[in-house]
Nucleic acid binder design. Structure first.
Length: 871
RNA sequence: GCCCGGAUGGCGGAACCGGUAGACGCAGCGGACUUAAAAUCCGCGAGCCGUUAGGCUGUGCAGGUUCGAGUCCUGCUCCGGGCACCA
């Protein structure tokens, strides 16, 4: 039966096995109601050009789980697709003049070939590319449904405007406040955009996290903090402007400190700020100047948070809602327009940021809450000033009240004057989806002079994006594409203008998992989605812990409310893969944008301690800057293409190495040191099977008559079966599963198979080993399976089951400690009781050396583990 | 700055619920085979002290809880992810 080559040759095995899978349509998913289903989904890649090691890690994890569950009898769906819209395609177009569509499709073709070469068990019949009209028409269709429900709506939003290129920039394209191509100072602009009312679902998105036991705690915590539920009071400071009575609204979680409010701070974009600046253009030009300065300030929340807290006094005052005192209104660069009402009350006495602000600008600091030691010092902030565990002082009627009753009393008094009420405030903001970019899904709206913004009728969907255009960096080329833009109003038939904004690419990835289930359906989803949903295992990078996963959850809930799906949550179990990091090398030329160099092109320089301090570019010998470690990405040019390794070692070795390198949730600093070990392991397995088969067929195994060494070997085999199954199925720790397989192979190599029963044992062991390897190294597994006499495809074989009889043992070893320090060990029968174990431990020679005959103070017995004698 | 993680030999990592720290692998060292090299095989390996028996120290730093702490608690340091237009 053995026709196997002496040498392990992945380069011939792998394509042959892949052909066999293709011919058998081995990975075509079928909706089989008689079997338990398993939907195994990996986050779809952006087609950036080539796969990198982060992709290999992600998709190997998915493939291991897919093959494992498949062998456990489940009907498995593992699909793949392409998150094909996005900025890098436009950048490539700007750089080489190639239209984004052509660039994207080329990349998809290349990367698909790479995935196939790696032998992933994917059902390619369900492939999706989000840039195709038969996919994105359903983005448009659902957007129209959301408009009808009022979930999609129009309001103004802030964008980064590059005044030179006359274009909107992504945050990533703004570097130190300047446009990445032009170097021009960026200004914030308010433009109309479509928003999705995700805050309508905030309560459910938060609450339902508790219904997801299969999600990592850290992800749920991050989402909960992001949604950010605060219970507090929304209250108003009355004022009059231009003879009109108005109210300035703020939200606070510390209404108990209202009596200590000594000023109010508003965002630079606040309507009152703009109005005051306009009014006092002549008298107080500082106001307009400060607002202008804020316009050029940081774009991201991170930048806002680290910038120096600055403010300017408007000279205007509002009334304290309870005392009527006049409080100065300041404009502060730290007040976020996007949170709450864009204004905050300043209580310097009990808020650290307000305290610092008051000290800086000489504002009044008023203590209104007691401090533990009674000594309040208004010159130095102390942690205890912010405590909610104290009581009101200097607060008139509220003196002596604790936090909760004080909030209640103040809210009640405010409500009586219609100047406030208790309110739940979310940190979560509605999702702005309009992008002033070409390579994305068109928003299905037509702007008509008479009818306004008119939704495109369903019958006219999809609004197809013209594919031949190539952006040049100055604005959206759709604006110059008359065949696209010039359209008749669907309502009145008059000439109108088509919306040229496209959708955020997060829309595309918010429901693609539903389209896989319903591939080719003439509707958005069909009945097959009911069989496959929810996703049983979702796998993707931890960087998506918040935005993508939150948007996908939201989108699913909207579709549920539209009765399109029946699930409340899309992903039952989530595995967040740690990032694969690599060095980042850059150079900033005198003119133009920062260049990034792949670590493979750089010679690093290290100091005495081995720390990288700099490097030189091999191509020109010039210096390059080390920017530390970062996740593998196109934009930082620090990806590692798996091709070279696959060509050198084969796909199985690369897959195995990736799984062996570290547990999946852990960040991994890339290094290919060690890949040799995985390759060597596979060669040893091959050799072992070859040597076993050389003398011919093995006899049947007679379990009842095994000798003790034979029983020990069989115990090792079945313990490995139990361990590998547990590591893959329960723990999703693949590195320890691989280590267990390596240990087993070492044991098998050391075993002298002299007798026929030894060879029978070996046959059993190798068959099990071969199947246990299937998830990791499926090509090798198939080749060995056939060589060992297995019929058909190894992937169709049943996953091995550990035989409990093989695992049984008579005696176990217990470790003995004295005062918690390891001193020796004892062997006891498995069933030994506590008294027997204790006696054996106290009689142990190593223990006696330390007890010197003295009676122990205490003896701790941990069954199956150890005995600790305390003296 | 805020939220979330992480840190264990020369390196990747193991130790799953508070119970033998360093499994498995890489690199290294010694040996076998070879004319030689590669490949392969065998062996050694946390540090310090000790001739051995053995002892002491040791999981980023400083404390604490416990019979017992890599694991739990408090306070730090450094590294990574996210911060709403990178995906």
């Amino acid at each position: 039966m053995s026709t196997m080559d002496v040498r392990y040759q992945p380069e011939t095995i792998e394509p042959a096995v892949q052909r066999a899978w293709d011919q058998a349509h081995a990975f075509r998913a079928v909706e089989d109601p008689s079997r338990q289903k398993f939907y195994c989904l990996s986050m779809l890649p952006y087609p950036s050009g080539k796969l990198h090691m982060g992709h290999v890690r992600n998709y190997t994890i998915g493939d291991v789980l897919t093959r494992y569950h498949r062998m456990n009898g489940k009907s498995v769906l593992q699909p793949m697709g392409w998150d094909a819209f996005g900025l890098p395609a436009e950048n490539a177009a700007i750089a080489n003049g190639v239209p984004p569509a052509a660039w994207t499709y080329d990349n998809i073709a290349y990367m698909k070939g790479q995935l196939q070469q790696l032998g992933f068990a994917l059902d390619w019949e369900r492939e999706v590319a989000t840039c195709q009209p038969d996919y994105y028409r359903w983005n448009q269709w659902l957007f129209l449904r959301m408009l009808e429900l009022g979930i999609a709506y129009l309001k103004t939003g802030t964008v980064n405007w590059d005044p030179v290129d006359q274009t909107v920039l992504a945050n990533e394209q703004v570097i130190d406040g300047r446009g990445w191509r032009t170097g021009a100072l960026i200004e914030k602009r308010e433009i109309p955009m479509y928003y999705l009312n995700i805050t309508r679902y905030a309560d459910e998105l938060l609450g339902a996290l508790d219904s997801l036991p299969g999600w990592p705690e850290r992800v749920k915590l991050m989402q909960a903090n992001w949604i950010g539920k605060s219970v507090g009071v929304r209250l108003a400071f009355p004022y009059s402007l231009g003879g009109k009575a108005e109210k300035l609204w703020v939200f606070t979680t510390r209404a108990d400190t209202l009596m200590g409010a000594t000023f109010v701070a508003i965002a630079a974009e606040h309507p009152l700020a703009l109005e005051l600046a306009l009014q006092q253009k002549e008298a107080k030009p500082a106001l307009a100047a400060f607002i202008e300065e804020c316009k050029h300030g940081g774009v991201t929340e991170a930048e806002l948070a680290v910038q120096e807290k600055k403010g300017v006094d408007t000279g205007f005052t509002v009334e304290h809602p309870l005392t009527g005192a006049a409080l100065p209104v300041w404009i502060g660069n730290y007040v976020l327009m996007a949170y709450g009402d864009g204004a905050v009350m300043g209580v310097p006495g009990h808020d650290e940021r307000d305290f610092a602000f008051a000290l800086k600008y000489g504002l009044k600091i008023q203590q209104v809450v007691s401090v533990p030691d009674g000594a309040y010092d208004a010159t130095t902030w102390r942690e205890s000033y912010g405590s909610k565990a104290e009581r009101c002082v200097n607060s008139g009627a509220y003196d002596g009240l604790a936090y909760a009753p004080a909030v209640d009393a103040i809210a009640r008094d405010l409500a009586a004057q219609q100047l406030g009420e208790k309110k739940v405030q979310w940190r979560l903001r509605d999702w702005g989806i309009s992008r002033q970019r070409y390579w994305g899904c068109p928003i299905p709206i037509v702007h008509c002079k008479t009818c306004g913004a008119v939704p495109v009728p369903d019958a006219q969907l999809p609004v197809v994006l013209p594919e031949g255009l190539a952006p040049d960096g100055s604005g959206n080329p759709l604006n110059r594409c008359d065949p696209f833009v010039k359209v008749d109003c669907p309502k009145c038939g008059q000439p109108a203008r088509r919306e040229t904004d496209t959708m955020d690419t997060f829309v595309d990835s918010s429901w693609y998992f539903l389209r896989y289930c319903s591939a080719g359906a003439p509707t958005m989803v069909d009945a097959r989605a009911k069989y496959w949903m929810a996703v049983d295992q979702y796998i993707g990078g931890i960087e998506h812990a918040i935005l993508h996963l939150l948007y996908a959850r939201f989108w699913t809930k909207v579709m549920r409310d539209l009765k399109l799906v029946t699930v409340d949550e899309p992903f039952t179990n989530l595995l967040t893969q740690g990032m694969v990091l690599n060095h980042i090398w850059s150079r900033k030329p005198a003119e133009g944008r920062v260049q990034y160099f792949n670590p493979s092109e750089v010679e690093p320089k290290r100091d005495a301690a081995g720390q990288i301090v700099g490097g030189t570019l091999r191509a020109d010998g010039g210096p390059v800057t080390f920017e530390g470690l970062g996740t593998m990405s196109k934009s930082k040019n620090n990806g590692v293409d798996p091709n070279e390794l696959v060509e050198r070692y084969g796909a199985d070795t690369v897959r195995l190495f990736m799984m062996f390198a570290s547990p999946p949730e852990q960040t991994l600093e890339w290094s290919d040191a060690g890949v040799e070990g995985s390759s060597r392991f596979l060669k040893r397995v091959w050799k072992l099977v070859h040597a076993h088969l050389a003398p011919g067929a093995a006899p049947a195994l007679a379990v009842a008559t095994l000798s003790e060494p034979q029983r020990a070997l069989r115990r090792a085999v079945h313990a490995t079966i139990a361990k590998v199954g547990d590591d893959i199925g329960r723990r999703t720790h693949f590195n320890t599963a691989v280590a267990a397989l390596m240990e087993l192979v070492n044991t098998l190599i050391d075993f002298d198979d002299n007798t026929p029963q030894d060879r029978a044992l070996m046959q059993e062991a190798l068959e099990h080993l071969t199947l246990l390897l299937q998830p990791f190294t499926p090509h090798l597994s198939q080749a060995l399976w056939t060589a060992l006499g297995g019929r058909g495809l190894a992937i169709d074989a049943a996953w091995p089951k550990a035989d409990p009889a093989a695992l049984a043992r008579d005696e176990i070893e217990l470790v003995v400690q004295v005062n918690g320090k390891l001193r020796g060990s004892i062997r006891v029968p498995v069933a030994a009781d506590r008294a027997t174990i204790e006696a054996a431990a106290l009689a142990n020679a190593d223990v006696l050396r330390f007890t010197a005959g003295k009676p122990p103070k205490k003896v701790v017995v941990v069954p199956g583990r150890l005995v600790n004698v305390v003296i």
